[in-house]
Nucleic acid binder design. Structure first.
Lengths: 182, 182
DNA sequence: GTAAGACTTCAAGTACGCTTGAAGTCAAAA
DNA sequence: TTTTGACTTCAAGCGTACTTGAAGTCTTAC
């Protein structure tokens, strides 16, 4: 962060292994605004070295980091989660495989969790509403799979977790379920 | 919204089919703060009738709506998406099955899209980083499925879409890929 | 009837994730 | 050398999604 880059190595067209990128190049290549990159740097999500003239230069491995931030953001993960997810992946050098792997396992857990949430919501909507009962408790038994099938995921029983998560709404959905019985 | 509820029907303990709920009861049952419920009402995401004394009373079917908002929020969907997702599901009466079904199909599309994004990120992390190549382009051929398998989804080739989406970062990942080849 | 607690509105404040603008500096090309 | 565009910091502003607080009203229970 307070290291210094060679002043002359600014922005050539061809690329060599340890060429440094300007903030503009990073922005163009990742699709992330320069102002956002500065913001991420303030947060410590990414880092840069500085030229003698105090301009940022990014090592190439920072591209991957920024891309991951962008994807995660698109998926609605807060930056604090992204930060945590990076764990001990180093900022000051190209991360090793082991370092990426350790981090990736953390991310995975978070992502699987979130994806499961999405799947639950999908099931609630296509399954429980689709079948007409509108009560998730009842639907846990019906176990619909019309929509899940189209994605290659097999039919599944709802988790006990779901019962807990949305129990508040369910305590009352019997009213709706009764109307559905007409 | 400007309808009026019977003044005497405030907050009994047992529940009848068309009993109305106070904002406090809604809050307790859905886990959503009363201030948030007022906010959602301002946005038109939910609606209430008023007592003679101007207090909110919620019909029971609003519980489901609020629960869906809460789940969607937990999954990082913006309220504007939630709003759109509700489409023509009516606020002023218990929605019919067809109305919920129409809306659910809209939601589904959004959710599937988002879930696919998560799966892509998972693949990138466990597949491409896990296997050591660190280049998504190369990994499209390797097609890892260790993590996908645990969720019952079959192994899949990466979409051409992925290539497009993250092409920016990939243009440079050959550098990383080269180091990975050691 | 009265007291307690739940409710009302409205305005302001907060946290996140940035963008915009001003004023000035740096780097590369002509 | 000069010009142009890309860069710098810092401060303020913005959109989303609320929370908090003040001042007052309603409902319920006693």
């Amino acid at each position: 962060m307070t290291q210094q880059a060679e002043p002359g190595s600014a922005a050539p067209a061809h690329h060599e292994p340890d060429e440094l990128l300007t903030i503009g190049e990073m922005s163009r290549r990742t699709g992330v605004a320069a102002s956002a990159l500065r913001f991420y740097e303030d947060l410590g999500l990414i880092a840069s070295v500085r030229t003698a003239g105090n301009q940022r230069r990014y090592p190439r491995h920072m591209l991957r980091r920024v891309s991951l931030i962008a994807v995660a953001k698109r998926l609605g993960l807060p930056l604090s989660d992204v930060q945590e997810g990076f764990g001990d992946v180093p900022l000051d050098r190209t991360p090793s495989h082991e370092e990426w792997q350790r981090a990736s396992r953390q991310w995975k857990r978070r992502l699987v969790e979130r994806r499961r949430g999405l799947e639950r919501l999908e099931r609630e909507l296509t399954g429980c509403i689709g079948c007409g009962c509108l009560s998730m408790k009842a639907c846990a038994l019906l176990n619909p799979d019309d929509a899940l099938g189209e994605d290659g995921a097999g039919p599944r029983r709802l988790d006990p977790e779901l019962e807990r998560d949305d129990a508040d709404a369910d305590r009352d959905s019997d009213e709706i379920g009764a109307r559905a019985g007409d």
